[in-house]
Design a protein around this nucleic acid. Structure first.
Lengths: 210, 210
DNA sequence: GTAAATATACCTGTTTACAGGTATAAAGCA
DNA sequence: TGCTTTATACCTGTAAACAGGTATATTTAC
């Protein structure tokens, strides 16, 4: 008796599910354990069944795919999550990885590439479709917008701010006047075009400064 | 005449450089264009020479490897960066990817695995040494510490805060009292054990909430 | 060697955040 | 069903951030 990999599909487009289903039915080693059009449906299912690999769309009606990925990895850390999406934004790819995905495929992958990625990820590999590799390794292409250039001091202070330190403490730690730190803080807000620290830290974090 | 890949090594431990050098000298297709023990040395070099692949240590005397990686990808987006480090923290791995690295190898990789990774990354693959794959796909193992569980409302407000909105505006947008939003904000600070929004946003971002 | 960028310091007023409470209706779960 | 969590609302005072300036050594870069 052949061992079969239990696989699930989560995608709110029935057409996509149909397509994947047809594709995977031909594969002997795969047991399509279920298809779901909403995140909560799948979570419910996952609580009672074990799934080895799930193909996960990112745009879902009830919950976004990145959050869902995190939930899946919390409930079933061994379940392999492959993102399957149209989103080409670098930030989305990174967030999926952040949340434990084992790979990211754009929906334009070929059948061969898809099957290959499924197999590789089952072996523990981390897989990306061709276009995604470019997106990951060429950060400049996307957000060439403006990555502000910070001085050493600014980076230092940015970092301390992100740790929750208040201005006066930062001043003491760096042997500066409180007012100097305020100036740096002001410059940071300007450089990042942020309205306040909250936005500042978000952008800085996204740009990889923290 | 054989075409050779121009490769550089940046590592502040001379021993590591020696070791890599010896290993790579046996490889015909590789031209070891230079070895560097500090980040600024390499940056200087990179401005005048083209390098196809650089093996990059993360702990350096003058600049940290993640920042250096970002600089490299800015100056020479085509240069492939392979992180080569002892750091097993998930956050470090993610930051290197964030900054455009094509892979992450722990220093305990075997010679075979290393050469294999170099070759694969030259083909455009994104590569990780075995242990790193585990680190990426099992977020829970490391920071199982406490990932706070947020309600839908809290996520909503967290997100708005991260966009730089102030309390009163958030209240208006969600048709809530300013005071209610303040309570949510307070709860967020508590759940994330943050001293203020700056720290809140940093942690939330690291945990993948944003 | 000169110009530009950086780091430093100061001032004033207004707005916002934060700490420390209390309280209640509604939704969700057992 | 009854218990718990979630979302809602309110109060008060203090601390901190932010906006809007000006100004000057000291590096760094060209």
């Amino acid at each position: 008796m052949l061992y079969k990999t239990r696989l699930a599909i989560v995608d709110d487009h029935p057409v996509v599910i149909e397509g994947l289903q047809k594709l995977l039915l031909n594969v002997d080693e795969i047991d399509l354990a279920g298809t779901f059009t909403s995140g909560s449906d799948f979570i419910q299912f996952l609580k009672n069944s074990s799934i080895e690999l799930v193909i996960l769309d990112i745009s879902l009606p009830d919950i976004n795919g990145t959050d869902l990925c995190k939930q899946i990895k919390t409930i079933a850390p061994e379940t392999i999550v492959l993102a399957f999406s149209n989103h080409t934004e670098r930030s989305v790819v990174m967030k999926m990885l952040q949340n434990g995905a084992s790979g990211y495929l754009l929906k334009n992958v070929s059948a061969v590439e898809l099957l290959n990625c499924i197999n590789e990820s089952l072996k523990g590999q981390i897989v990306f479709s061709e276009a995604v590799k470019e997106i990951i390794t060429k950060p400049g292409l996307q957000n060439f917008s403006e990555i502000p250039k910070l001085t050493k001091r600014e980076k230092e202070i940015l970092c301390l701010i992100s740790e929750g330190r208040i201005t006066i403490d930062i001043a003491k730690m760096l042997f500066l006047s409180k007012l100097t730190v305020e100036t740096h803080r002001k410059n940071l807000l300007q450089k990042f075009k942020a309205k306040n620290v909250a936005e500042l830290i978000k952008i800085a974090s996204k740009e990889g400064f923290l």
